[in-house]
């Protein structure tokens, strides 16, 4: 084998795509030819550099959530496409950023089901966006067909709220890593005082807070960050007394954790892995003191 041949085949050799006989031939050549051996080494170095995880993009959490929800809903709601039809096409166009062809072009079979599911998801997200206008009529992800106020419905609400918070400009009303700024911010806006603690030392940085609407009422939300992962912590007064242990579920690739203690309902939701989320849950739960019992403030809801 001469150098010209070798330089052509060295790529396929480096890629493991050469037939055995040619591979042996080129190996013999590489053993004798320093120039071609250097080329082989360059290719290996380039390969290693291109394999650097820093050069790889990961799917944004919001995209993952949209697709996971769409897939799940394609099956959950596939039986009722007619219901999703109402106003669906317009919403889907919004969802697809108004640049794609109409939903009708999706065709039959699962594509159609997915299309309707996307319409449903878009409706739900739009409904979330207009929540302040008409909060009572809203049920996320087509939950109207399910038992109201059930555990599953609440989980859906928590997840929908988390997804909405990840959209640009929706995450925080007050941006601060200082618990002494975030905690007073809630005063006068809600009729209870959520426990606010920073756990930066434990790897969970408090980055801000906001108000949201869950389970038929205004709730406090604390936002924590661990590396690139956002954790939403929803807190509101529990209607009943008593305590529950930390309870985890997974939905559409997100982890949800819930407990009740010190008169407060607490829900955590994140794309963080279940163990890390439970670590934060334990920290938060140990900090929930009797001082934050509902009704301690008498300010009306904002």
């Amino acid at each position: 084998m001469n150098c010209e041949e070798a330089r052509t085949l060295v790529h396929a050799y480096a890629d493991g795509e050469l037939a055995l006989e040619s591979a042996l031939e080129i190996e013999r050549h590489l053993a004798e030819c320093a120039g071609c051996a250097r080329e082989r080494a360059s290719l290996a170095a380039l390969s290693a550099a291109l394999g650097d995880p820093e050069l790889q993009y990961s799917a944004p959490p919001a995209l993952r959530a949209r697709i996971a929800t769409a897939i799940a809903d394609a099956f959950d709601e596939g039986a009722a496409p007619a219901e999703a039809d109402r106003g669906g096409a317009a919403h889907v166009r919004w969802w697809r950023r108004g640049r794609r062809r109409s939903i009708a072009a999706f065709g039959a079979g699962f594509g159609a089901n997915l299309g309707w599911a996307l319409a449903g998801a878009a409706c739900a997200l739009l409904a979330v966006a207009t929540i302040n206008v008409n909060p009572v009529s809203w049920r996320p992800f087509g939950a109207a067909a399910r038992p109201s106020a059930s555990r599953a419905a609440l989980e859906n609400e928590v997840l929908a709220s988390h997804l909405r918070s990840l959209m640009p400009g929706h995450l925080m009303d007050v941006t601060s890593t200082d618990q002494h700024t975030v905690k007073p911010w809630f005063n006068g806006r809600i009729d209870f005082s959520p426990p606010v603690n920073d756990f930066a030392a434990e790897g969970f940085r408090l980055i801000g807070g906001r108000l949201d609407y869950l389970d038929g009422r205004t709730v406090a939300v604390l936002i924590y960050q661990r590396r690139k992962h956002i954790v939403n912590v929803f807190v509101w007064p529990a209607g009943e007394s008593g305590e529950s242990t930390i309870d985890s579920t997974a939905m559409h690739g997100f982890n949800l954790v819930h407990w009740r203690r010190g008169g407060m309902n607490v829900w955590l939701v994140s794309d963080l892995n279940a163990n890390a989320l439970r670590d934060l849950a334990r920290l938060l739960r140990s900090e929930s003191t009797p001082a934050s019992i509902p009704g301690s403030a008498s300010v009306p809801p904002a």
Binding site: L63, R66, I67, A70, I71, A74, R96, R100, F106, G107, G109, F110, G111, L114, G115, L118
Partner: peptide, 9 residues
């Protein structure tokens, strides 16, 4: 998104 719609279809 479009690719997943097609993949499912």
């Amino acid at each position: 998104q479009e690719a997943f719609v097609r993949a499912i279809r």
